[in-house]
Design a protein around this nucleic acid. Structure first.
Ligand SMILES: [Mn+2]
Ligand SMILES: [Mn+2]
Ligand SMILES: [Zn+2]
Ligand SMILES: [Zn+2]
Lengths: 149, 149
DNA sequence: TGTAAAGTGCAACTATGTTACAGTTTATCC
DNA sequence: GGATAAACTGTAACATAGTTGCACTTTACA
């Protein structure tokens, strides 16, 4: 990741143009915020960033916007231990299912695009598996570095 | 599992006697309900079962009781996709961390005591891993059987 | 530029979980 | 058995995350 603001703008336009639906200020802002973030964000986080950028997005509109972005495959939704959904942009359309890491210290949620849930061996075959979410917890790179110098 | 009601009663007394705290009606009832259930239950489920058994447990007491059971290692708490916590009894004190299966059809949550999250290979070593929750989704044994005859 | 459909904002609502505090029950000691 | 202190419970009020209905505004497109 780590795109420049111009690259982000270009990606936002491109992704929204491809989607069957209107390109609106809310959708542009939210997608821009998601693409700019190094970690996944929940509704509260997004509202905060929007406020910092002097954008005001209605709470309900934000819910609907995020649902729409997920439906379009432009963002993905991550369940977290703190009872709120987190969202992260999907810049490439071929993004694979991957593990997520929740840092217990800074509470950030990282997409680990290179870590996948291993194929299950002793899952009884009568269970029809459709999805496997691997949710890791511990201390993240940054917090670890801060602690160990 | 599949204990008889008498076995469940015996186990309840035994587990509560070992725990440092009082043996109360709420704790007995809730632990009994958890031990009787084939799947994990959330607060709402437990209240329903309690009602069926003509027990009335206050909502707040139920929250506190479940927290206490988890602290004592007598129950474990499972995060779910539907923003509510599920609970399942821990009959043996040596129960290992294990995967959970959420059936998208009947919404039940199963403890798969024989399925563990595989050791992570390509997790960057700067992440300090403390816990790995593996949350499977799909169709459960029962729903599968009902569908396929 | 006018229009219909899509999207937004507001208010009111639901679900899940928490806190404070007064009242009740339990275990323990005499 | 009865007194006592600590542990537990019930009630009310609150917090947070998310949903619904409906009127209003904006967008895309002819
Ligand atoms: Mn992700
Ligand atoms: Mn379990
Ligand atoms: Zn961290
Ligand atoms: Zn099922």
């Amino acid at each position: 990741m780590t795109m420049t603001p111009e690259e982000i703008n270009r990606t936002v336009s491109q992704l929204l143009d491809q989607a069957p639906g209107r390109s609106t200020r809310a959708r542009e802002s939210v997608l821009n915020i998601l693409l700019s973030a190094p970690t996944a964000l929940n509704h509260h986080n997004i509202e905060e960033v929007a406020k910092q950028r002097d954008l005001s997005i209605d709470r309900v509109t934000l819910y609907r916007t995020l649902d729409w972005l997920v439906e379009q495959g432009v963002a993905h939704r991550i369940a977290s231990v703190n009872r709120s959904w987190y969202f992260s942009a999907v810049a490439q359309p071929d993004m694979e299912p991957h593990a997520h890491f929740h840092c217990k210290k800074c509470q950030q949620i990282y997409c680990l695009e290179d870590v996948q849930a291993a194929p299950m061996h002793n899952l009884p075959k009568e269970y029809q598996l459709e999805e496997a979410d691997l949710c890791l917890q511990g201390q993240c790179v940054t917090c670890n570095r801060d602690a160990n110098g």
